[in-house]
Design a protein around this nucleic acid. Structure first.
Lengths: 135, 135
DNA sequence: CACAGTGTCCTATGACATTAGGACAGTCAA
DNA sequence: TTGACTGTCCTAATGTCATAGGACACTGTG
């Protein structure tokens, strides 16, 4: 878990942290129950304010990704069943995919290329997962 | 071209317009060379300020989607060849797809389901395109 | 040319998000 | 209990977004 932030990207720093923790959790770089860096430690490493780190963790807790215990720290939650219904989950993904499709159109990437690209990224993702769970 | 904006979504209004114009252009609802609503007309229809509409158009021009001619109006550009190299274009899409994959993981949507979902959205997108180009 | 339409630029203002520092409260081991 | 750690709350500074209105330059038509 070694996050990095880009202050000039326009994306709020706390959201960048949220994304990276989620990616680390999904990819297996973080294990369920494992402690995350404290808000102060994370803030110092990234040279940001404590509150910015705290806000990222608060957002992660509200999304059910981590659990925070005041005075103790923040810990990655076990992958419980998503509380959202299957249809709702598909809808959310569909909206994101639609945006990608529009983007692909403007970048002039064809349907088949896009499908292949997804398959390739999925494979790379699973490979990274395997690597993490091996050590 | 009948955009709509959501003031409570948190997404800046001008970016919502940008996204919708891009989607309309990709989907064929707007044809190359076609004139977009004037800054003032769009502002009045959406009940937003001229400057907000102008900002959206400025952003679209900087991305090469439209062409603005002062005194004349804004027009959809012809789908020229993307100036980016194929590898760069794939990289951009890959980054977006990776984010979708992480999201799918947290929503507990499997690889095959995700692939099917992409295929379905692509099909729906092409159907909309067909409909537009028919009238 | 005149004129109505177009996009552009300027300043000011208010609302909100983001970041920041200081103070406070809970946890846990020595 | 003490002390060092943890997360949390409060308030302020800064930046962004949207609004508002005025003024200007350009285009196309008559």
């Amino acid at each position: 878990m070694k996050p990095h932030v880009n202050f000039r990207s326009g994306v709020p720093v706390y959201l960048q942290i949220v994304q990276q923790v989620k990616a680390a959790a999904a990819g297996g770089a973080l294990r369920p129950g494992e402690a995350l860096p404290s808000v102060r430690a994370l803030a110092e490493e990234l040279r940001i304010n404590r509150n910015t780190a705290a806000r990222a963790y608060a957002e992660l807790e509200s999304e059910g990704v981590i659990e925070t215990r005041q005075g103790a720290g923040c810990f990655l939650k076990a992958n419980g069943v998503s509380p959202l219904k299957r249809a709702v989950r598909s809808d959310r993904l569909a909206a994101e995919l639609d945006a990608v499709i529009v983007q692909a159109h403007h970048l002039q990437v064809g349907d088949d290329d896009l499908k292949s690209l997804l398959a390739a990224r999925l494979e790379a993702f699973r490979e990274r997962q395997q690597t993490r769970s091996a050590d």
